[in-house]
Computed example of a mutant assay.
Amino acid sequence: MSALRFAVAGDWHGDLSIARAVVRTLKCEDVHLLLHVGDLAVRWPGPKKGRFDKRLGQLLDDADVELLFIDGNHDNHKELRELEPLPDGTQRLSGQMSYVPRGTVIERHGVRIGGLGGAYSVDRRWRTEGKDLWSDLEEPTPEEAERLIASAPVDVLLTHDAPAKINGLKGLALPPEIASAAGRTRELLQSAVDALKPALVFSGHWHQRKSHELDWGDGTITAMHVLAHEGSWGGNTVLVHWAGNGSPGVMPLRIRS
């Protein structure tokens, strides 16, 4: 396995300012791979549909950065599933930008990257089905988790929601039935982590920066990182140095405006 440097970003929600700053920073840092944990908001419906996608694609082309993203809960699930499939299992949005479907494992420079996106929208009562909500498609399923586990090993796992064993996350005060529904995804993701024991897990969704380690008792650990949203540049994007031996290094990316 060769050394690889790559970046991982949290939710952007179609915000071009942080997208521009991150991609330009990666160009300066000579980093050519960016992973995204969902709520990217490409193909987002509305009068400005496609503008963010087009500009982001131009930025990626100019910087020679490949963007691989999973889906969050606030993504256009219907249109993502209709994207052009590629031989490596991804689905292309544009030249340098591809969606990693749930349950898919891809490889870059010997590093195996798994995707299990999606989450329950706790704000669904304020959303409109088919416009900014796809309630029957937004949550990952046990079948998708099983497909991912069957593709083991996985070195880096991308999820949108955070696995259940990440503690200390500050969330909204939710009615019990909504909290229970949202918790389904966290438990499902944790079952995938327990089965795969990846070196790294990256999540978003909670709009805050948190880290937690799981010690498997055999000399290996899983470092789990929740990334902040677009409003927190200091916690949104990290730089990963994967040397192929020892623990991978994860550090904040100093985003240049």
Score class of each variant (00 low, 15 high):
138 E>M: 12
20 R>P: 01
231 G>K: 14
83 L>M: 14
191 S>F: 01
232 S>H: 11
96 Q>I: 00
37 V>I: 03
104 T>Q: 12
156 V>E: 00
87 P>W: 09
125 R>H: 09
150 A>G: 07
214 L>V: 15
3 A>L: 12
126 W>I: 09
95 G>D: 01
155 D>K: 05
127 R>P: 02
32 H>T: 07
58 Q>M: 01
243 A>E: 15
131 K>A: 04
228 A>Q: 06
9 A>I: 14
133 L>P: 08
16 L>I: 15
57 G>Y: 05
68 L>D: 00
74 H>C: 15
16 L>K: 01
186 R>D: 04
217 G>H: 10
18 I>P: 07
244 G>E: 02
234 G>Q: 11
162 A>Y: 02
40 L>I: 11
80 L>S: 01
84 E>M: 12
92 R>T: 06
33 L>V: 12
236 N>P: 07
23 V>C: 07
205 H>R: 10
10 G>I: 01
16 L>M: 14
11 D>V: 03
255 I>Y: 09
145 A>E: 11
174 L>Y: 03
209 R>I: 04
94 S>F: 05
60 L>A: 07
127 R>F: 04
63 A>V: 06
170 K>L: 14
225 H>A: 03
155 D>N: 09
174 L>Q: 04
144 E>A: 12
150 A>F: 04
187 E>S: 14
19 A>K: 02
155 D>C: 08
213 E>L: 14
241 H>Q: 13
220 T>C: 10
48 K>H: 11
251 M>S: 15
22 V>I: 15
20 R>T: 13
225 H>L: 04
89 G>F: 08
83 L>P: 10
151 S>H: 07
27 K>F: 04
116 L>N: 04
155 D>A: 07
252 P>V: 09
186 R>V: 03
218 D>E: 09
74 H>N: 14
257 S>P: 12
200 L>Q: 05
166 I>W: 01
137 L>F: 08
40 L>Y: 06
210 K>D: 05
21 A>W: 00
41 A>I: 00
98 S>R: 15
149 I>R: 11
